[in-house]
Computed example of a mutant assay.
Amino acid sequence: MSEALVIGAGPAGLMAAEMLADAGHSVTIAEQKPSVGRKFLMAGKSGLNLTKDEPEAAFFKAFNADWLLPALREFGPVEVMAWAEDLDQQIFTGSSGRVFPKSMKASPLLRTWLGRLANKGVTIRTRWQWTGWNGDACIFQTPDGPVELAPSVTVLAMGGASWRKLGSDGVWANQFERSDLRPFKPANMGFVVEWSSHMNDHLGLPLKNVAFGVGGSAIRGEAVISAKGLEGGGIYTVSAAVRDGAALTIDLLPDLSQEEVGKRLKRRRGKDSWSNHMRKNLKLEPVKLALLQEFARPLPDDPIDLSAVIKALRVHHKGPRPMDEAISTAGGLAEEALDRKLMLRARPGVFAAGEMLDWEAPTGGYLITGCLATGRWAGKAAADYASRLSVKRHL
């Protein structure tokens, strides 16, 4: 049947290619890097969190793009888990609901998936860099020189604008009208903190059993005190709100009420310093005491005032880390630029999926599921479009 082109060989692109191949179309995947799935493999270095096993309402709420809910409802956590198992990956669900392959790696899944795509006749071309259109044809710079392809349908899946070295550089945005785009912003990133020398002994240490506060709500999580600032899963969960202007606070003792903290601080201190008093009566670890001194010196002398600081320690930061260090990005192709099938309104027969689209979600399995779901949705829509086009040509 019709020839189809997929540009980008991450999870969204590979899923789109499989949908097209399953519908009987001849599929070529063009990837600008020397190998495929580079960001997917990088995600696997921390365990490959495929999805999150939780009620649908909670899962969908994590995404800030209601326009993508049809794709997510059709291929959500249950379907992702079944998909992974169909690729010979045994999976397990952690205590937080996060779902991982038992191998805790991306490479076995990717290897099996690529083998399945090859058996379905999918061709992969690496080191093919898309540089735009010439009429309806896609232009590529390849090791053998410029190449133009004019497929029946195209699915764009070139990623966002973080992790440039892995292929997600956002350069593709230069080929679109500004009105079709939303500015890229870092998502799931750390924040710059210019630590004083007082923190030198604590750099690289984890910050556990805390809650991060934004906009009146608090979320339990963990972080790492790096030389560059604060990063880690707990920070990433609240990073979008903080990036957009919300104040960031840390509850250093989330298991104790402010009243209980104040009560313990009122105990006779004697000759103990405040630090020793807090260490003995609140069991505050050295890293938490250091943060308290870093952000709240001079500490209040009144136990009630100090308890308020401990329960909502204001983090003074210099903003997000650079976008290329972010796990993902917000921004990209706007909802208005695509129809409900994720086809570009300005280019019939061209679809888009994955991080190219204007959406964001926290880490915890949402990102990979979002890419798989939108890739599947766009791939199926492209296959239907190509089939209808083929029928018209033969009438």
Rank of each mutant, 00 (worst) to 15 (best):
I7K: 05
A4M: 11
G132K: 10
R268T: 13
P298A: 10
L248A: 03
N119M: 14
P322W: 13
V287A: 12
S387W: 04
Q175L: 12
D244V: 09
F63G: 08
F191S: 07
Q141P: 01
M199I: 05
M158G: 03
T28H: 15
F59R: 07
S35W: 02
K280R: 11
S26L: 08
L306N: 04
G331Q: 07
L117W: 00
G10L: 11
G190D: 07
F92G: 01
H277S: 11
L256T: 08
N49I: 12
L338R: 11
A12N: 03
G364W: 05
L50G: 12
A21Y: 14
T28A: 06
L265V: 03
D305M: 10
F63V: 08
R268F: 06
C138K: 05
K208Q: 05
K33R: 15
A240L: 03
P183C: 06
A308N: 01
I327L: 10
V350P: 00
R376P: 09
A378R: 06
I225Y: 06
F60Q: 01
S273D: 06
E285H: 11
L389I: 07
K39Y: 14
R264H: 09
D244E: 14
A211G: 03
G216K: 07
S239G: 14
D180K: 12
W172Q: 02
R111Y: 11
V153W: 03
K263N: 08
F295P: 10
G13V: 01
E325P: 01
W113S: 04
L72C: 12
G216E: 07
